[in-house]
Nucleic acid binder design. Structure first.
Length: 317
DNA sequence: ACCTGTCAAGTCTGG
DNA sequence: CCAGACTTGACAGGT
């Protein structure tokens, strides 16, 4: 079995390469009208260029798993701004897509916590659809929508999980079919645990992203290995290697917070579990130290007996 | 050069 | 109904 590792958004090994430069609505309104659009485009051009630099960095390190920043385009879906971020950057989007293909990178998006389909307020669902569209359009512009996922959480519980899950199934119908086709759902550290998330995924035929840190923070009564075959089966429709989110607790007290680096022992236990299933997986490292945390974990895992590093970002077990 | 308050959006808890 | 927590990085303005 093979494990590929990757990281989220920013590469700390590169100087000044944030792909998430922003302009808030407040700042936008403070600019003279004739400068506003120029500034939006400037920020976007910079984020796209930084993403390009990161893709080359990934290639140089043979890293094939990467989550792109959701903040590539500032105010892309703001109701009073909403601007065309596709046409002015047609060439740039295409170039990113070509590099992603050329370097065999598995790219994904993970919209923010306000993108959810459980709310009983209609505008929340409308905003969620808008935000999902924004992410989908970026993937389309890069020509990689068929090979990518947009991952979100189920959402809040509103004091009644059962009713709320039903509302999720109702609200998700508002999402255009082609976008729903490429979405995934991740188990949550506070609300929907592995068992509950898996049930929703099965019902909607949506692949499930397993987050092992969230799982430890929000345990189901059963052991994780009992769920793994079903979780991994949800990826078969898309013929994709299952994706697992990796992080470890900051402290015992702040258990849910992400530690800067990933604790090797926290993960190696899980890797031993995976070994029994002998299946390829991709690890998305979610830690404050980003690529450094990923490199650290790659080296840590490589030192385990029976684990061999066969490429910069790939381990064979 | 460093520090601090602010920012479109979400829910949850407590008052 | 509202404030603060949760949590996030980036940024502008102040010292």
């Amino acid at each position: 079995m093979r494990i590929r590792l990757g990281f989220v958004a920013n590469a700390l090994g590169l100087w000044d390469a944030s792909p998430s430069k922003t302009m808030t609505y407040k700042r936008y309104t403070e600019l003279p009208k004739n400068e506003r659009m120029d500034r939006l485009k400037e920020v976007t051009a910079l984020n796209l260029n930084h993403t390009k630099r990161i893709l080359y960095y990934l290639a140089a390190h043979e890293i094939e798993v990467y989550r792109m920043s959701s903040s590539l385009v500032p105010l892309a879906t703001h109701p009073y701004v909403k601007w065309d971020f596709l046409k002015p950057f047609k060439k740039e989007w295409q170039e990113l897509g070509e590099l992603i293909r050329q370097f065999n990178i598995r790219a994904s998006f993970h919209p923010n916590q306000f993108t959810l389909f459980t709310s009983d307020r209609e505008h929340v669902t409308e905003n969620a659809v808008e935000d999902m569209k924004y992410h989908y359009q970026m993937l389309e512009a890069m020509g990689i929508e068929k090979d990518s996922v947009i991952n979100i959480h189920i959402g809040g519980t509103y004091g009644d999980k059962e009713t709320t899950v039903e509302r999720f199934h109702k609200n998700i119908k508002k999402l255009p079919a082609e976008i729903k086709d490429i979405m995934t759902l991740e188990n949550d550290d506070k609300t929907y645990n592995v068992e509950e998330t898996l049930a929703v995924c099965k019902k909607e035929d949506i692949p499930m992203v397993l987050d092992i840190h969230h799982h430890e923070a929000n345990l189901t009564t059963e052991k994780i290995e009992e769920y793994i075959p079903d979780i991994f089966d949800t990826w078969k429709r898309r013929n994709m290697v299952p994706k697992v989110h990796i992080s470890s607790p900051k402290t015992d007290k702040a258990f849910r917070s992400h530690s800067d680096f990933v604790d090797l022992h926290f993960i190696s236990e899980f890797v031993q579990v995976l070994r029994k299933f002998d299946v390829d997986v991709d690890f998305m490292i979610e830690a404050k130290s980003k690529d450094f945390a990923m490199f650290d974990l790659i080296e840590g895992l490589s030192s385990i007996r029976g684990v061999k590093r066969i490429r910069g970002g790939t381990l064979e077990l």
